[in-house]
Design a protein around this nucleic acid. Structure first.
Lengths: 205, 205
DNA sequence: CAAGACATGTAATCCGTTACATGATTGA
DNA sequence: TCAATCATGTAACGGATTACATGTCTTG
């Protein structure tokens, strides 16, 4: 069993899904392409942790709708109490920010503005999903919401973190505000330009 | 050229390092094990983007100290202006949170308390690193700080995000505070326990 | 005296992405 | 008519982890 397989079980714990739907749902949990998901679904089904139902559709291709079995739930339950592994956060943006001193001021600012706009769009999209979960919750009644509680708080988590990152970008942009200071930091002008600039100012900001 | 190679160039842009030191530095930028780093260092050196110096040490094994060349800087510079790829965030904790409804209340709470304590420790450690960068900045003078500016802001970014995640954990724990509501959400009691509980209360909280 | 920091490498295996393959329907 | 959505799969390749290999010095 690898982590993706637990992610699949966790997602199907919420509601039965096709492999296609699963790929979208896993974005928040453990991103994976369909080419990786399908073989694992077959594997989990053969182990008896999942079952599937063949569903014919009109105007759309047929699909296999997978559901978690009791055995699958047991496997998941045993795994969630284990100490989670360290998260692996890989983001090219961070490498570029670290090497920012090589770029000119406009290049560095563009990196940050682009990031803010990308994060802003994602927050907006996610807000719609949150509204949808809240709407379903009110319609189906709170008891049915227990399975959706996890998704609800995870969507909110991601939005809190993305908004915080936008604040960070703005903070960095603020440091750039004083062009003398920024030019210095990026090595455009020499240290002599800074004489007497550090009273009452903490570090770079 | 793959992303790890740019991460290595980005790290060495700050200061010359051995492969061993690099592994620690890359934690913040693009995590990689030493077994992955060493072959790439050899490859980058053969391409002329890096050079190394053999350094003999007393009481410690010899090491190779790598530095970025002008050619290496040019390669990096050309890459940082390209649109960064979507970040890949993989974290087992999220899968477990999503499947939380399978656990009992204590199990769910433990998951969150453990996360808070792990994040808290990392924030503490990073604060020491930030203090160190600030100290070096004051000692070597701000002009030498330009290369360290990227690292400084990235350390602060990670701490802002980790503190925000701690707040999120506390928010979730707060939702658990009302045991009636929590038991309902986790499916321990039926929906009838909730009657009249939702006036003036937004969704789960 | 054991654990951990320092230091560098290779080999086997596992995980993840890209490309290949196919095909209907719907909306701009 | 072009792109997107829905839908499922396999094969090749590249990226990342674990295990194998070796050795000294320092600190609890």
């Amino acid at each position: 069993m690898n982590t993706l397989e637990y992610a699949i079980l966790s997602a199907l714990g919420r509601k039965p899904c096709s492999g296609y739907e699963l790929a979208a749902y896993l974005e928040l949990l453990w991103p994976a392409k369909h080419s990786q998901i399908y073989p694992h679904l077959t594997k989990l089904e053969q182990k008896g942790l999942l079952v599937y139902e063949h569903v014919e559709q009109l105007g759309k291709p047929d699909k296999k709708v997978y559901s978690i079995t009791d055995e699958g739930k047991e496997a998941l339950k045993a795994w969630i109490v284990e100490q989670p592994a360290e998260p692996a956060l890989r983001d090219e943006f961070l490498i570029k920010i670290n090497a920012m001193w090589l770029a000119d001021e406009d290049g560095a600012k563009k990196l940050l503005y682009d990031r803010i706009s990308a994060l802003g769009k994602k927050v907006e999209q996610r807000e719609k999903k949150i509204a949808k979960v809240e709407k379903e919750h009110k319609e189906t009644g709170p008891a049915a919401g227990s399975k959706h509680f996890g998704r609800y708080i995870l969507l909110n988590r991601r939005n809190m973190l993305d908004r915080e990152e936008i604040s960070w970008c703005q903070w960095v942009l603020g440091l750039f505000g004083d062009s003398k200071l920024v030019k210095l930091m990026l090595g455009v002008v020499g240290a002599e330009a800074l004489v007497g600039m550090f009273q009452g100012m903490e570090f770079f900001g």
